[in-house]
Design a protein around this nucleic acid. Structure first.
Length: 471
RNA sequence: GCCCCAUUCGUCCAGCGGCCUAGGACGCCGGCCUUUCACGCCGGUAACACGGGUUCGAAUCCCGUAUGGGGUGCCA
């Protein structure tokens, strides 16, 4: 039997990194096994599908390179099937109607001195169906259900701990437990791969599955949770988890997916950064870890940096374009010169870990620095030896050379340092004042080629401006 | 409270009874290279939660304890 898996997100806002990881592991398993991946939207809560869903779920999945073979199916389109299953359970006596509210239940539990929860009060009350009436599953009470989990092994849950849970709401809509059982059965799902936070619901679905006479339930595989640096489940509230936000920050999809694959799983050969195709080949569910995994930005950044560094200059400039031509840049849009960015790309690529970092390193090539970095200025101009003479001599030297030749520029600037060193018998670093004068800061990409691209007029103008400021 | 799950360097992963004086990666700390910052290279730091078993032999199997996490809804 060829495996069939499903990724079944609830359409609540954006795609979360945790969900993306679940989608990825389903996908890796399916592709590794030559199986089928189904996309199913768990919108039992009668929400809006269409564009909003596409933007929130489909688009990010496509960005990551996760595709599917069937769907998207919408649970809301399958209400009839769910209703039939509920009816079947009611007819067979496996489920019954209940009109107790949450308050009623709490009050009854307290009154009876029982632990909080529903204790089967409506089982024999013969409540009639109607508005606001729910359907509850009649839990067995005795015995146990064993979940055969590919990652965790056999997980046994005593039925005495399973209360008569709701399978249909008061408004007639099905709860995901019954929808899951019906849809997984109807769609022939063989492996249910999802987060560990759903492990507790598995026995309930299996109970329904068996009550419906579906035969052998699917194999489960509960993935370890993704947690924050405090060891808590990643949540929308306190953690930055929207996949779209990572994209905006300049993470590459290849890096993102590579990193996500490493959370809860690792290849035996210990090679971490590698193409997705290789990960597909090596992936196996029983090699997935059981312990929660911390989502670590630093490692993500490192991997992203490796992918950035591996790009060709042209690819890099194309990928970084949104961050170089946008409205957030320090320079006017018309000042941007892609050929300059491409020429300097190799130097940039080894220095940045996110595409959004590119602009900061390149800024001075498209607009004169509005101000000098105070520390850089002090170090190079004030504390730096004889900065005034260095600049005078550099300006004079640059006026006579061919600016198309980066090596000539280097020779001119460095020659000034060497000459002064000889004269003063103490080392003079001529590069520092030049860098501050041109870029405004004390650190950056190598100067010579960049100066050549900037041009003699602009370089000289900035050098003279800095020199004037020294007087 | 009750139920479920987990526990190898700070972090992610390798390890699936002997190859482990526990390996890789990120981070961190040194050094080399370099008239900037990086990259690169070299080196270092640091872990089998604890206690009992089982076994000739345990990080690996079993049981407890501790700690952490998840669930406990007419959310999924």
């Amino acid at each position: 039997m060829t495996p069939r898996v499903r990724f079944a997100p609830a359409p609540t806002g954006f795609l979360h990194v945790g969900s993306a990881r679940s989608a990825l592991f389903n996908w890796l398993f399916a592709r590794n096994q030559g199986g089928t991946m189904v996309l199913r939207v768990e919108d039992t809560d009668a929400s809006k599908k269409t564009q909003e869903f596409v933007d929130a779920i489909v688009e990010p999945l496509q960005w990551l390179g996760i595709d599917w073979d069937e769907g998207p199916y919408f649970q809301s389109d399958r209400r009839e099937l769910h209703a039939v299953a509920v009816q079947q359970l009611v007819d067979s006596g496996r489920a019954y109607f209940c009109d107790l509210s949450r308050e009623d239940i709490d009050a009854k539990a307290e009154e009876a001195g029982l632990p909080p929860g529903y204790h089967g009060w409506s089982r024999d009350r013969d409540v009639a169906d109607g508005p606001g009436v729910v359907v509850r599953f009649r839990a067995p009470g005795e015995g146990s259900t064993v979940i055969d989990d590919e990652i965790r092994g056999m997980v046994e849950v005593q039925h005495s701990t399973v209360e008569d849970f709701v399978i249909r709401r008061g408004d007639g809509s099905p709860v995901f437990l019954i929808a899951n059982a019906v849809d997984d059965y109807e769609m022939g799902i063989t492996h249910v791969i999802r987060g560990e936070d759903l492990l507790n619901t598995a026995p309930k679905v299996v109970l329904l599955w068996n009550a419906l006479g579906y035969g052998k339930p699917p194999t489960y595989a509960h993935l370890p949770l993704l947690v924050n640096d405090q060891g808590k489940k990643l949540s929308k509230r306190r953690d930055s988890v929207a996949l779209g936000a990572f994209r905006k920050e300049g993470y590459l999809p290849e890096a993102m997916v590579n990193y996500l694959a490493l959370l809860g799983w690792g290849p035996a050969d210990e090679v971490e950064v590698r193409p997705l195709s290789e990960i597909v080949e090596l992936f196996s569910l029983d090699a997935v870890n059981k312990a929660p995994a911390m989502f670590d930005r630093k490692k993500l950044d490192h991997i992203n940096g490796e992918y950035i560094n591996a790009m060709s200059p042209a690819e890099f400039v194309a990928a970084a374009e949104p961050w170089l031509t946008g409205t957030d840049t320090l320079w006017p849009a018309e000042a941007y010169r892609p050929e300059v960015a491409e020429a300097l790309a190799p130097e940039l690529q080894q220095r940045i870990s996110k595409l959004s970092d590119a602009a900061g390193w390149l800024s001075w090539l498209f607009v004169a620095p509005s101000d000098y970095d105070e520390k850089g200025w002090t170090k190079a101009m004030v504390k730096g030896r004889v900065a005034d003479r260095v600049l005078d001599n550099v300006i004079a030297a640059l006026e006579t050379i061919d600016f198309h030749d980066p090596e000539a520029i280097e020779a001119a600037v460095m020659g000034v340092g060497a000459d002064l060193t000889e004269e003063l018998s103490d080392r003079v670093l001529s590069q520092a004042p030049v860098r501050v004068a041109l870029t405004g800061g004390g650190a950056g990409i190598p100067l010579w080629q960049a100066m050549s691209l900037l041009g003699d007029d602009e370089c000289l103008a900035r050098l003279r401006a800095a020199r004037a400021r020294l007087d």
